[in-house]
């Protein structure tokens, strides 16, 4: 079984993806393991921009079965409307109009069962894509889910992405979507270990607490990486009181931030950053050895 690590944060912009990309780099190098990134931030997958000379490999459509109403046989009785918990079906009898709104439908199938006229049939509707990328000989080292614009079926795309059929490495790094919504849950429930990335600010601490609540509810082992570490002490006090492990503190390095902006973080890694990631990799190795 591959070891699955999710990298999550209570909000966007904490450097979650940079951490993921660096971990990929150092874990591959130090552990001599095959590492794969799964970019689960399906609304805005961006891990791919950090690698040069990427080669697109496979691409697969993710579809959802959506009911379609045949208005020739529909009697506009509105039974299906009553069964649809998600308000996805619009039936306007005086206008002889009946339609399903794909962006609201959750494919629960209740309306199919409800319709006495068999006027509803299911058809596949695209909600997103799963793309894989190669990096030289490193085949599908990166997989990403990409939600179709306008769709709100994040969780469905993620569920497809975190299925084991995509995995062909020993360590999987899930780059989770920001926040604490269902899509984050769909990502981190798959993981053996969760890394929470935070910034030591009052807002950062607030979001971190929400995340900690969530991972505790899911009963997952976890540790925290403090990005742009500085003096704000409440974060440290809180983590200490709660007995939560700080995996690393990443110093704020302005040149490095600039290279992030240029999408070239894996070139010219400063030595302080390198030693931080070497440390994290060792810690993770000790923790996860029993999963492999």
């Amino acid at each position: 079984m591959p070891v699955k690590i999710a990298i999550a944060s209570g909000k966007g912009g904490t450097g979650k993806t940079t951490v993921t990309v660096n971990l990929y780099h150092f874990m591959s190098k130090i552990l001599n393991s095959k590492v794969q990134i799964a970019d689960c931030d399906v609304e805005e997958p961006n891990a791919s921009i950090f690698f040069e000379e990427l080669e697109s490999a496979k691409s697969k459509q993710v579809t959802q079965l959506i009911p379609f109403i045949n208005t020739d046989t529909c009697t506009f009785c509105r039974k299906c409307v009553d069964y649809c918990e998600f308000n996805a079906i619009i039936v306007i009898p005086p206008a002889q109009f009946a339609e399903v709104s794909p962006s609201l439908c959750h494919s629960c199938g209740a309306c199919l069962y409800a319709c006495p006229e068999k006027a509803i049939i299911e058809q596949p509707n695209e909600i997103g894509q799963i793309n894989t990328f190669n990096h030289g000989v490193d085949e599908s080292f990166l997989i990403e889910g990409r939600l179709k614009i306008g769709s709100s079926m994040q969780t469905m795309v993620i569920k497809d992405l975190v299925k084991d059929d995509w995995i062909n490495k020993e360590v999987i790094l899930y780059d989770a979507p920001p926040g604490t919504s269902c899509s984050v849950v769909a990502t981190i429930t798959q993981a053996n270990y969760i890394i929470l990335v935070t910034e030591p600010t009052p807002f950062g601490l607030h979001d971190l607490k929400l995340m900690i609540d969530l991972v505790r509810k899911l009963n997952k082992p976890f540790g925290v990486i403090i990005n742009k570490a500085d003096e704000y002490s409440d974060t440290y006090t809180y983590l200490k009181e709660e007995g939560i492990e700080i995996l690393a503190e990443i110093p704020f390095n302005i040149d490095y931030v600039k290279s992030y902006a240029q999408g070239s973080i894996l070139k010219n890694i400063p030595s302080d950053i390198e030693s931080v990631y070497t440390g994290i990799t060792q810690k993770l190795k000790n923790k996860l050895i029993h999963h492999a």
Binding site: F86, N87, A88, I90, I92, A95, S101, L104
Partner: peptide, 14 residues
């Protein structure tokens, strides 16, 4: 929880 807007539109059209 969802679809309040589209349901309101359905209502006024009806």
């Amino acid at each position: 929880n969802s679809g309040a807007g589209i349901k309101a539109a359905e209502k006024v059209i009806e």
